[in-house]
Nucleic acid binder design. Structure first.
Lengths: 220, 220
DNA sequence: GCCTACTGCGTACGTCGTTCGCGGTTAGAG
DNA sequence: CTCTAACCGCGAACGACGTACGCAGTAGGC
């Protein structure tokens, strides 16, 4: 199993014919990486650590994967297999997208390392494409350009990740640099009442407003 | 100048009284880092590289900065000094925020490394706080909870970064993993007409829709 | 049976962030 | 003035990282 030459892991032939059969599978490697990421974040996913998890060495991993980034791509797509969505007949496109957004967000929140890994992946795997497909299917009845829809899906995904990030890492901002004279409103806002609980359904409201503005009504 | 013990760079005393005067200034260090980041991205900003830019060594930098992350914080806030905004009397809060959003995005697009650096910064510097203050000032006349406004500003910043990212790195996605059977709509969308130019003013529409939905009209 | 492609793996290279301790310098304390 | 403690720049080192190379062994195609 060569980890080089071809374009991406998804198109690469899984196995040559000649040599001994590989001792590992891509699925196991991805699972090992995910196991490490779940505990120590993406920083804990080093070639050596993943290899140790599989009781082998780092150089062996390069028989399966061309680089660390490719391993991350593999992990992302494996995690995306956890996404499931069943269309309903009683809801419109906006409702369907909101439901997709919410289950996607919960997936990101459950595996926060995804938020750090996704940006590197410019070669989406089958499960990631499946997610995309679900979004497009939800908008099937909507009369808009496909380009327009895909733009909206891209923005939607960004917003989902945005909310997932703030949910995963409670915004512990250190406002030590604040000067009451230069930032009166900020000071007033912070020294005022305690922050309290975030607005309920902020996520759903944001998603609805965004998609509505991007896809609904007038102007094309 | 000790790079340790105190909470953040912003509150740390700039200089002790006893020893010889430092040969460098934080501003120069940040500028050197920015210079490197402008060419080779954040990856090019290593302690050794920044030190070499200042004709010194990596260990010397630690007299000024506690860690690489702190150096990044410094760079981010220095770059944020490039943000300027003058309120107008003839526009409402939404118009003001849209203008802020657009100039912020152009700042991100001009210095794409900011998009990779910001996530690490949980200790905003004075210039970053100044940006926040501008947003709050734009909404001064708006009758909403301060909490609500700050949430909206947080989401706004996320959306700005989202669009800036897609503008800086043209989405060269490799769809090699696509199976026409499993992803019919995606295939149809991609094999159909060429992607063509993105929708005009997608950014402004998204910002307007989002802020409108988050802050305007009914429901509290 | 040989050749060839493939396997796992030990080793090594260069780079990274960071720490430690040295010699030299400066300012406040006595 | 002397002394001393705090501070400076810096060389060297540590451990960890991603990755390349080459070796010994194995299994299928001819």
């Amino acid at each position: 199993m060569t980890g080089g030459q071809h374009g991406s892991i998804w198109t690469r032939p899984q196995r040559g014919a000649r040599g001994p059969s590989p001792e590992h599978r891509l699925a196991d490697i991805a699972a090992a990486g995910i196991r490490l990421a779940a505990t120590g974040g993406l920083a804990a996913v080093s070639m050596r650590a993943v290899a140790a998890e599989l009781k082998t060495t780092a150089s062996t991993l390069y028989r399966y994967v061309a680089s660390r980034d490719e391993l991350l791509d593999l992990m992302v797509d494996t995690a995306m297999a956890g996404f499931a969505h069943t269309p309903r007949s009683d809801e419109d496109w906006l409702g369907a997208l909101v439901r997709i957004a919410e289950s996607t967000r919960s997936l990101y929140v459950a595996q926060p390392w995804l938020l750090d890994a996704v940006p590197s992946s410019s070669a989406p795997g089958p499960n990631t494409l499946c997610w995309f497909e679900h979004c497009l299917q939800a908008m099937a009845a909507l009369d808009r350009t496909t380009l327009r829809k895909m733009e909206a899906v891209g923005v939607l995904n960004g917003v989902i990740m945005l909310f997932a990030r703030s949910a995963a890492a409670p915004t512990a901002i250190d406002f030590a640099a604040m000067d009451p004279v230069r930032h009166p409103r900020l000071t007033a806002a912070l020294t005022g009442s305690s922050p309290g609980p975030p607005t309920v359904d902020l996520f759903e409201r944001a998603v609805r407003a965004l998609l509505g503005g991007l896809l609904d009504d007038r102007a094309g």
